[in-house]
C-alpha cells in the first residue's frame, strides 16, 4: 500500500529517463545502426521492464519479509545488467555507446555493492567522455556518489573537473551543487562553510539558466534545510489546507507532540 522509496530510486529513474533521451542511432558504416547500440537498448529495456515489475510487486508487498525477497531479486537482475553493460562498454570503448553503458554502470553498480566498478565507470566517463550528453542525465545523482561510492578525494576532484571543464551548464551546476551539499552536510569533512558558499554560488551563477533549474531549486532547498530543519531547531511553521479544505498552521499544535509525515499513495 505504501511505497518505501529509498532516495536512490528517484535518481535511478531520472538517470534512466535521461538515458532514453540520448539518441541511440550512431553514425555507422552503411548508415545502419551499429550492433552495440542495439545491444545497449536491449539490455536497458529488458532490465527496466523487469525492474518495473518488481517495483509493482514491492508496492503490493505486505510484509518486510516479502519486501526483502523482492529486493534480493532486484539486486540479482541489476547485477546481471551491470555486468552486461560493462562488457558492452569495454567492447565499444570510446564511443557514445560506451558512454551510455558506463553511465548505466555508474548508476547501478553502487546498489549491488560494487563501488570499485562504479569508480571505474566514473573515471572512464571523466577521462574519455567529458563532453558527452550523458552527463546531463547523471547530474541529478552526483551528490549520491559521495555516499561511499567514491572516496571524498575522488569525489572532490571529479566534481571540480565537471564544474570547470564540462561544456554543459546543467552539468557544471549539478557538480557545484553536489560538492556544496556534501561539504555543507558532512561535518566530518570540515568544509561546512565552503559547502554553503558553493550552494549560494549555484543560486547566484545559475539563476534563470534552464538546464540548471533543478540544481538551483535543490541548492535552495538544501540551504533552507541546513538553516531551519536540523534536529534541535525550532520547526518552521507552515500553513496548509486539509482534506476538508480547512486551512491550518503547524503552530496550532503547540503543546502537542507532532509527527509530520510526508507520504503518498501514488
Amino acid at each position: 500500500m505504501r511505497t518505501l522509496r529509498p532516495r536512490g530510486w528517484f535518481r535511478l529513474a531520472l538517470a534512466g529517463a535521461a538515458l532514453c533521451l540520448v539518441p541511440l542511432a550512431l553514425s555507422a558504416q552503411d548508415g545502419k545502426p551499429v550492433e552495440p547500440a542495439q545491444k545497449l537498448e536491449q539490455v536497458k529495456t529488458s532490465f527496466e521492464e523487469r525492474r518495473n515489475a518488481i517495483y509493482k510487486e514491492l508496492r503490493a508487498a505486505e510484509t518486510d519479509e516479502d519486501r526483502a525477497g523482492l529486493f534480493e531479486e532486484l539486486k540479482a537482475i541489476q547485477k546481471q545488467a551491470v555486468l552486461d553493460m560493462r562488457a558492452l562498454a569495454e567492447a565499444a570503448a570510446g564511443t557514445e555507446v560506451a558512454a551510455e553503458a558506463w553511465t548505466f554502470v555508474l548508476g547501478n553498480a553502487p546498489d549491488i555493492g560494487n563501488n570499485e566498478l562504479a569508480g571505474k565507470a566514473f573515471d572512464t566517463l571523466l577521462s574519455q567522455h567529458l563532453t558527452s550528453p550523458v552527463w546531463q542525465g547523471l547530474s541529478g545523482m552526483f551528490a549520491y556518489l559521495a555516499d561511499g561510492t567514491l572516496s571524498a578525494e575522488k569525489f572532490e576532484k571529479g566534481m571540480t573537473t565537471l564544474m570547470e571543464k564540462s561544456p554543459q551548464k546543467g552539468v557544471q551546476a549539478g557538480a557545484m551543487f553536489a560538492l556544496g551539499k556534501v561539504w555543507a552536510e558532512r561535518a566530518d569533512l570540515g568544509k561546512e562553510a565552503e559547502g554553503k558558499a558553493l550552494l549560494k554560488r549555484v543560486l547566484k551563477d545559475y539563476a534563470g539558466v534552464k538546464e540548471a533549474a533543478d540544481s538551483v531549486a535543490e541548492a535552495e532547498g538544501t540551504l533552507f534545510a541546513l538553516e531551519n530543519l536540523k534536529v534541535g531547531m525550532p520547526c518552521p511553521d507552515f500553513e496548509a489546507s486539509d482534506e476538508n479544505g480547512v486551512k491550518f498552521k503547524l503552530s496550532e499544535y503547540k503543546g502537542k507532540v507532532v509527527l509530520i509525515d510526508f507520504w503518498g499513495f501514488w
Partner: peptide, 17 residues
C-alpha cells in the same frame, strides 16, 4: 527539501524538531 518518501519529522510539544 524532501529527498524521498516517507520523510518524517518528529516535533516536541515546544515546537522543536
Amino acid at each position: 527539501n524532501v529527498q524521498g518518501y516517507p520523510t518524517m519529522y518528529l516535533v516536541d510539544a515546544k515546537g522543536v524538531i
